[in-house]
Design a protein around this nucleic acid. Structure first.
Length: 136
RNA sequence: AAAGCAAAUCAGCUGUCGCUGUUUCAAUUUAUUGGAAGAGAGGAAAGUCUGGGCAGUGCAGAGCACCGUGCUUCCUAACAGGAAGGAUGACAAUUUAAAGAUUGACGUACAGAAAGUGCCACAGAAAGGAAAACUACUCCCCGCAGUGACGGAGAGAAAAGGUGAAAAGGUGAGGUAAGAGCUCACCGUGUAAUUGGUGACAAUUACUGCAAGGUAAACCUUACGGACUGAAAGAUCAUGUAAACUGGGGUUUGUCUGUCAGCCGAAAGGUGUGAAGGCAUGUAGGGCGGCUCGCUCAACUCAGAGGGUAGAUCGAUUGAUCCCAGGAGUGAUUUUGGGACUAGAGAAAUGACAGCUAUUUAAUUCGCUUCGGUGAACUAAAGAUACAGAACCCGGCUUAUGAUUUGCUUUUACU
């Protein structure tokens, strides 16, 4: 199926990012930390994401570029896990993904890790919905 | 073969999946979907150290302060950049009795120290005062159990020793009690003239002298130059409202004009109440990079218009551009002709994976060998890797860097 990962998946709105960090719902799977939240987005895609490598750890610009490219690549390959779930449920989320390791890791390792992260995230989202129903 | 310098290039191909612009085709739901073609990081994109373009703010002008630069001529849009030249420094070689001279590659923040102020530690007798006598030197006088390589007092003397980064021109000769630019020769240094050079400066000649140092990346003086901010600059559009913006009226005092209205007069004219205009002037306030002189604005009111919102578009890539050829110039550079369009993102694209080719390392075999190595074949492993990612654009400087290719120079080996 579709593996494209274009501009529409990119989260740029400062307001949305502020909203994410107010809520502070996170899922951890080394070497990633994902902060997420449900919100209505100005796009037809089911999620938008910020991909980040901290400047504190990676001083050189080309190192940061390398990490972000790897993260974007594995995200693109594995995003269907998340996207299929969200499409089925007809929900939209915003996501802020941070790389926390101090060194570059191999592509195949990262591919497995992101898969684990997505499955965790999906189960968390299921729980959230149950809680919402109870409240309602 | 090695080293140095200069220049060029940052691999390519195939497959799968993607990213950002551009052009284009098709479909429909008319703003979306799908497809095709072609483009997509650097020599430093870095440091943000400099010079400009561009933009905004400010600006009558002058002085001071502040900052920068500092041999000459040239190049350039400009420069703290570059080219050519001059001077100078220590080093090496040659030469000389020595001082010095010549050559070479390298370095120089290379204006002024008789405008003034400050500083020059330690050592040393003396370190800036036309200075200084410690040892040793010379002369003269005195003393003595001692007649000395003795002791004391005076004078001369900066040549010798010692200290120091530096001791007051150097070397040789004369001279002298001993010495001293005291005198002479050569050299150095200062001043002046002449000649050569666009000039920095050089050469020659003459002369007074040689007691009067260094430090200005210490203050300072002098010549020249310099507004400040920075693309998150700034412009336009959508929404429809501020204290910022634009326009009108109003805004100190005096005096003049006699244009308009008013008043007096039959009129000529007068008056100077209001309006208008000209000139002069005062005070408190705002503005003019930090200060001074000086200049300039108007408080209030009415109307127009608009702010925020990391929104969209422009700014933004056709330019002091790049490539090739010819001409000018020692060169930096410039000029003529022809050709090219070569990233334009926006929390920031240019990628990931797999395979092959180059190459590197190791082992084996064969050839050559000065026995150090070296060339070829084959096998295995690694396998495009250094420094590093455009953020408005150019010129430079500095720093970081692995390879491959080409040219020049030097050294070594062989012919």
């Amino acid at each position: 199926m579709n593996q494209t990962f274009g501009k529409e998946y990119k989260l740029c709105s400062k307001k949305t990012i502020e909203f994410l960090f107010e809520k502070k719902k996170t899922v951890k799977q080394f070497p990633f930390i994902a902060t997420y939240g449900e919100i209505e987005l100005p796009t037809k895609k089911s999620f938008q994401v910020v991909i980040s490598a901290p400047k504190r750890i990676f001083r050189k610009a080309h190192d940061r570029n390398r990490i972000k490219r790897l993260m974007r690549e594995v995200f693109r390959k594995k995003k269907l896990i998340l996207e299929d779930f969200l499409l089925a449920e007809k929900r939209q989320i915003a996501l802020f993904l941070v790389y926390t390791n101090k060194e570059e890791m191999k592509y195949t390792v990262l591919e497995n890790k992101i898969e684990l992260l997505f499955t965790k995230l999906v189960s968390e989202l299921r729980k959230d919905k149950k809680i919402d129903k109870i409240v309602l």
